[in-house]
């Protein structure tokens, strides 16, 4: 099963020019960036509509783009679904029909692959979100896969972490995920779709502060003696993504704080309006 494109060439470069441990470019959009920050009378996007999510994030690992939106904590749609001492977490995964990647035409709501992905995300976050703080409520997470080029699960988990942060849901720690694979004896990080097809790979989700692993997903065979090396490097890579995510969060929070203090006084608000016109 050899492919024409070398996974790792003699110079130590991968098919897309990355080195072994190099991650793809990480793009993070936290919150609804398309919503203007200044108040514009003629654009009702500045007043959030009732269907607007409480938190949202778009994460792109290279060509893989996944968005997550969080609704809640809110009252459950069905009263019987309420749990008396904690919040119910529900994750729905949708795949855009033109996202490409996986074979097969269209994946609807009941698709097995998507349900499995949703269940993996749900079980990952059930132990991380402080559900005990929100009794009798529901937190809905909608994950949309916009583009696929490998590492869908890692992108989904990272975007859900950011969206939950954006929504202000209490968590014990962040969850950061990365995928890693093994090419003969070389460990590769953040695999593309092409690389995922050609080597055993795993996705690890780690809570970086405590170092606990909340998800380990592997759908191939990997020798037990090699596993440790792959796993260790993946756990190390997680801290890099964590730092990147934290810098985006702090930037966003700073701008939010700035806009709150800007609009604190009526005089400043008027100044903002004049700028618009």
């Amino acid at each position: 099963m050899s492919s024409r494109v070398e996974i790792l060439n003699a110079g130590g470069y991968r098919s897309d020019g990355r080195t072994q441990y190099e991650l793809r470019s990480l793009e993070i959009i936290l919150g609804d960036s398309s919503r203007p920050r200044t108040i514009n009378l003629h654009d009702s996007a500045s007043n959030p509509h009732p269907n607007a999510p409480d938190g949202s994030a778009i994460v792109g690992h290279g060509l893989t783009v996944v968005s997550a939106r969080v609704f809640g904590p809110r009252e459950p749609l069905l009263r019987r679904e309420a749990i008396h001492d904690r919040a119910k977490l529900s994750v729905q995964v949708a795949m855009l029909p033109f996202s490409g990647g996986m074979a097969g035409r269209r994946r609807g709501r009941g698709d097995k692959r998507l349900l499995e992905l949703g269940a993996a995300i749900e079980s990952t976050f059930e132990s991380v979100v402080q559900t005990g703080l929100y009794p009798r409520s529901q937190i809905d997470i909608v994950v949309e896969i916009h583009q696929q080029d490998g590492g869908t699960l890692q992108a989904a988990i990272n975007s859900v972490t950011l969206a939950l942060t954006d929504a202000g849901v209490a968590m014990y720690d962040q969850v950061v995920a990365v995928s890693a694979g093994l090419h003969s004896t070389a460990v590769l990080l953040d695999l593309t779709h092409h690389e995922e097809n050609d080597m055993p790979h795993l996705t690890v989700a780690v809570m970086p502060r405590s170092g606990k692993v909340t998800l380990l997903n592997m759908e191939a065979r990997l020798h037990v003696t090699r596993f440790e090396a792959v796993f260790k490097i993946a756990c190390e890579a997680v801290t890099v993504i964590r730092d990147e995510m934290n810098s985006v969060i702090s930037k966003r929070t700073t701008s939010l704080v700035a806009s709150i203090s800007d609009s604190a006084g009526p005089r400043n608000l008027r100044a903002g309006n004049e700028m618009d016109e």
Partner: peptide, 28 residues
């Protein structure tokens, strides 16, 4: 009879794998 602002994005930035694509945003 006024519309909200209509935002348009199209081409590869929306769906690179499609032959043609566009994203329209009107308000929310």
């Amino acid at each position: 009879v006024d519309y909200r602002l209509i935002g348009l994005a199209r081409g590869d930035s929306v769906a690179p794998l499609a032959n043609g694509s566009a994203k329209i945003r009107v308000g929310g």
